Simulated scan of single mutants.
Amino acid sequence: MTAAITADNILAHELVGLEATVVESSDPTIKGLKGTVVFETKNTISIRTTKENAAVKTVPKIAAKTIEFHTQTGACFISGATLIARPEDRISRLS
């Protein structure tokens, strides 16, 4: 059984599948972007938008100053710079 994703342990979990919103960004074109995380690399997060066209947008982690993730226990706000690392390295380092 997998532990519930909370604000305390979100960095040690997979982000794919979580609902996310870019709250604050240095790039005005991604500010307010909302959807489901579908892919993550060392420097980017891909989000499938919840708009009618359901496009996948790639968000540079460094440009996303604040990202809101919706977890099973509530919302969690994280700086995109905190997420810069290969997902598998971040997960193994923190778990």
Rank of each mutant, 00 (worst) to 15 (best):
A63M: 10
G17R: 02
T58R: 08
T50W: 12
E88H: 06
A20I: 03
I84A: 05
G80S: 04
L94D: 07
N9H: 00
A20Y: 01
I45A: 05
P60R: 09
R90Y: 08
L94Y: 06
I67Y: 01
I91G: 02
T50Y: 13
N9T: 03
P28K: 10
S26K: 07
R86M: 14
Q72W: 08
E19Q: 12
T29Y: 13
I47A: 03
E68L: 09
K42S: 14
T50V: 14
A20P: 04
V56M: 06
A12V: 10
N9W: 02
M1K: 10
A64E: 02
S92V: 09
I30C: 05
A3C: 07
V56L: 06
E40Y: 05
N43V: 15
E88N: 07
T58V: 15
E24H: 09
E14N: 09
E19K: 12
C76N: 08
A81E: 14
E52P: 00
K51Q: 14
N9Q: 02
S92G: 06
V22D: 02
E88K: 02
V56Q: 10
K57N: 15
F39V: 07
A64N: 03
R93Q: 14
M1Q: 13
E88Q: 09
T36M: 05
F69P: 01
S26E: 11
C76L: 07
K51V: 15
T44W: 11
L11W: 04
P28L: 11
E14Q: 11
V56Y: 03
H70S: 13
I10K: 02
D89Q: 07
V59T: 05
T41M: 05
D8C: 05
T66R: 08
S25H: 02
F77K: 10
K34Y: 15
T2S: 12
V56N: 09
S79P: 00
K42C: 14
T41L: 07
L11H: 05
T73E: 14
H13Y: 13
L83F: 05
R86F: 14
L15F: 13
K42R: 14
S95T: 15
P28Y: 10
A4P: 01
F77Y: 13
L94R: 07
I30E: 03
Q72S: 13
M1E: 15
T6F: 02
H70Q: 14
L94A: 09
K42D: 15
K57H: 15
P60M: 08
A12C: 09
K31V: 12
A4F: 05
D8W: 00
G35K: 01
D89A: 09
T2Q: 13
A55C: 10
C76H: 08
F77L: 11
E14W: 08
T29F: 12
A64R: 05
D27P: 03
K51F: 13
L33G: 00
T71Q: 09
T29I: 12
K65R: 14
L33C: 08
V59M: 05
T66S: 10
Q72L: 11
T21V: 15
E52L: 07
I47S: 01
L33I: 13
T6W: 04
I47V: 07
T6A: 02
R93E: 15
K61Q: 01
N43W: 09
A54Y: 12
S95L: 00
I45R: 02
V37C: 08
A54H: 13
A20N: 01
T82P: 03
K61G: 08
R86D: 15
L18Q: 01
S25W: 02
S26P: 00
T44R: 04
A81Q: 11
A20C: 08
H70G: 09
H13P: 00
T41S: 11
